[in-house]
Amino acid sequence: HNGKLCKLKGIAPLQLGKCNITGWLLGNPECDSLLPARSWSYIVETPNSENGACYPGDLIDYEELREQLSSVSSLERFEIFPKESSWPNHTFNGVTVSCSHRGKSSFYRNLLWLTKKGDSYPKLTNSYVNNKGKEVLVLWGVHHPSSSDEQQSLYSNGNAYVSVASSNYNRRFTPEIAARPKVRDQHGRMNYYWTLLEPGDTIIFEATGNLIAPWYAFALSRGFESGIITSNASMHECNTKCQTPQGAINSNLPFQNIHPVTIGECPKYVRSTKLRMVTGLRNIPSIQYRGLFGAIAGFIEGGWTGMIDGWYGYHHQNEQGSGYAADQKSTQNAINGITNKVNSVIEKMNTQFTAVGKEFNNLEKRMENLNKKVDDGFLDIWTYNAELLVLLENERTLDFHDLNVKNLYEKVKSQLKNNAKEIGNGCFEFYHKCDNECMESVRNGTYDYPKYSEESKLNREKIDGVKLESMGVYQILAIYSTVASSLVLLVSLGAISFWMCSNGSLQCRICI
């Protein structure tokens, strides 16, 4: 991952900044910058967002509201009850120091605090018919004063009620008058409520006091790749198909172990950190130390980045220098085999997901714990399936590479015959000098055995068991695999060879 928040398929997220979902939807004055928000790819909250409900109280069923919003990608904020005409018999300019803005008392931008007009609070009834052709999110509140005197001074009615009804919602609220500790300079409380109004449905408000009335509502448009994440990451000019709280993932790998919460087309989250597919040879310690064997393909974004291909070729060293050249036929066979294998694994496992966190309130801790156990169970199954699949494929890959290298080895052996000696570690020792032209003939299969047989015969008789390297004779190393990324691999195959001279070296080696 890149540690950044990015656009998702070209669409920017909605960053709530210092506000949370509650503050944004109710219209906390400190969240005025969010009022123009219309569309987004996903919503970003920060872990310690401080601006929620400015007048103390709870947004009821907040967790369910977050779940609903996680599939919303755009909205239209509109005046559901026009301020100047909807409440002619009531005062609608209630403000509070708890919702101060720029040093002055204020109130929510989407709600109206209705109080008595003169000395009376006549029963009010108002309704709205949803003609938007889509779901409408309606929010309101109920004020709970701290004393009967406060109730009387604001609403005149000691036994007030609030009723809200639609086809799918029907509740009646009565204020709970009680002494409470002071929070944000208030002994009173406000509880906030919401409902989704279906197209064509009607919502009716009736009250004799204590109503925090809707002013603006939201017509919602769903987008199934949307979601809500909690993150401290910063926004950058970048684009992605998959976003996590820790950063964007741009990967076609089937798995990731970065974060379980994802938005967009994302690899499946697994616990494993070692889900690797081999593309090189079986481990040979001396070669492995030099980083030549054991190439791997990573299938977990965050564990290993991208696929690494092994390729086969020849390396030689003689009086004229040293050089490398790919054996294109065996390399292409290996590439085709690995590509098919990788595609097979991805096809089997690479279903892209959006995974969002589930919200539970403080009273639902047991449910949250149960949900976590269920999620953990599914996660263990996914991890096991992934590891088992790759384990089985790896064994076949190792066998496949062994065969490829063996074929190259036999190709060289059949040409050199007794003009060189096998020394048991995949290397041959020449009994004759071999210049670049000679080396090329070994690589392309045109090695002239009779041409060098007499010199080889004489050297075999002279050496008589002495280690060949100390006599200045020449080696050919018969097994060799270097490691390159897919891009470098293609470039390498396009070149005939490249040279690395070893000044004054008397050794001649050709490596497979």
Rank of each mutant, 00 (worst) to 15 (best):
F299T: 03
D376K: 07
R282H: 08
L389V: 13
A326F: 04
G426Q: 13
I308K: 15
I249W: 12
G264I: 06
Y474A: 11
C238W: 08
R460E: 11
E461T: 11
K467D: 05
Y314P: 01
G445P: 03
K365I: 07
G310E: 04
E454S: 10
D435M: 02
Y324F: 15
A297C: 10
G337S: 15
Y384C: 10
S497E: 01
N371W: 14
A325F: 11
G313K: 06
R282A: 03
N418L: 11
Q246R: 08
L391W: 11
L489S: 06
S231D: 01
T262F: 11
I463R: 09
E410L: 02
G377S: 10
K341N: 05
K411T: 10
L253R: 15
I510F: 09
N232H: 13
N419Q: 02
E359M: 02
N419T: 03
I496L: 15
A355E: 11
A386K: 03
S456G: 15
P245C: 13
H432I: 05
S234C: 00
H236P: 00
C438R: 02
E422C: 06
I296T: 03
A386F: 01
M277R: 09
T279F: 03
S453Y: 14
P267M: 09
T383K: 09
I346S: 03
E387A: 09
D380V: 07
L389R: 03
E387R: 01
A326H: 02
L389T: 07
L398S: 10
Q288R: 13
H432Q: 09
P285R: 10
S470I: 15
I335G: 04
N343A: 05
K421H: 12
M307I: 07
T244A: 11
S502N: 02
N418F: 09
H236Q: 11
E437Q: 04
Q288G: 09
G426D: 07
G313F: 07
T397Y: 10
T482V: 14
D309W: 10
K433W: 00
I381Q: 07
E437N: 15
R509N: 02
E429V: 10
E364S: 04
E347R: 11
V412W: 06
T446R: 06
